[in-house]
């Protein structure tokens, strides 16, 4: 015969969110509706980003104005900047082969904050492959600045949509008001928009000023990866600021069913 414990004290082991399934379902619908509206009109925001970026670029390069083109991506009308980039000389490619190889090894062996150093080793790896490519096959490089610009903006657009979806899934179960979750989505999109302008201008200037050799780096490192990093940063801040006050509110939590 086994006895039962007379009392099980509340403990974090079996703590869970005190939520009603219908409330959660309602929240999912609200958040998805917002995301759907954003998704439908995402090309409008992208167009805004392109116009701001063009204004910035026109200020930087007052003598040569860039132009804007557009194309169809699924059902969106996507705008992008058309400009011309530089090709690297063999000497520059050769120097970068050695430098990036050296960087790859140094960062791989760097003993501190290994996660970051291995990431930089990955950056050097991309640069190394690119330098090799431009040293041996410069004429075969498949992208102009205009075609890359189009791909970059398409990626950015799809990145925004996916990050929104990810953001919804990441906050939907939290014991906080729907309006706060919605605010997080809006704040995230504002930040991604601003970051998007900075990134896009940076990409265009880099390829225009320093050559196509950096194009792969712009795609693999300064593309969705940066968006995702900023998303994580914002998400972490949001959880810290918004969920901290919920800790002591006993109504938010349940312990044993």
């Amino acid at each position: 015969m086994m006895d039962q414990k007379r009392l099980i004290y509340p403990h974090r082991s079996y703590k869970k969110v005190n939520a009603n399934k219908y409330v959660i379902l309602k929240e999912i619908l609200v958040l998805f509706f917002f995301w759907l509206v954003f998704t439908v009109f995402v090309d409008v925001f992208v167009k805004g980003l392109i116009q701001i970026s063009q204004e910035v670029l026109d200020k930087v390069y007052s003598l040569e104005k860039s132009s804007i083109a557009h194309h169809k991506l699924l059902f969106w009308d996507v705008y992008y900047i058309v400009d011309f980039g530089k090709y690297p000389s063999s000497e520059v490619s050769l120097i970068l082969i050695f430098l990036s190889f050296l960087g790859m090894i140094i960062f791989l062996k760097f003993p501190f904050i290994r996660g970051v150093s291995i990431f930089f080793s990955f950056v050097c790896f991309i640069l190394f492959v690119s330098s090799l490519y431009f040293f041996f096959l410069p004429e075969k490089f498949p992208y102009s600045l205009a075609s890359f610009s189009k791909i970059y903006v398409d990626t950015l657009l799809l990145s925004w949509i996916n990050t929104g979806l990810l953001a919804i899934l990441s906050v939907v179960f939290f014991p906080i008001k729907t309006v706060l979750k919605l605010s997080f989505l809006i704040a995230m999109y504002i930040v991604l928009f601003v970051i998007g302008v900075v990134k896009y201008v940076f990409v265009i200037i880099t390829i225009k000023e320093y050559s196509h050799l950096f194009t792969p780096l712009m795609f693999f490192v300064f593309g969705p990866v940066i968006d995702f990093l900023f998303f994580l940063f914002l998400y972490g801040m949001f959880v810290n600021k918004v969920l901290n006050p919920t800790r002591k509110d006993i109504d938010n939590w349940r312990w044993v069913d």
Binding site: R12, R114, V116, I118, S170, F174, Y235, G236
Partner: peptide, 26 residues
């Protein structure tokens, strides 16, 4: 990770998430 931090009553730990991203490479 964030869900666990919340249940452990320590949501402040979520501030380190971007660094966790780099740990992936490691």
């Amino acid at each position: 990770v964030v869900a666990g931090a919340i249940l452990d009553d320590s949501p402040a730990k979520a501030k380190l998430l971007p660094l966790l991203f780099f740990n992936f490479f490691f």
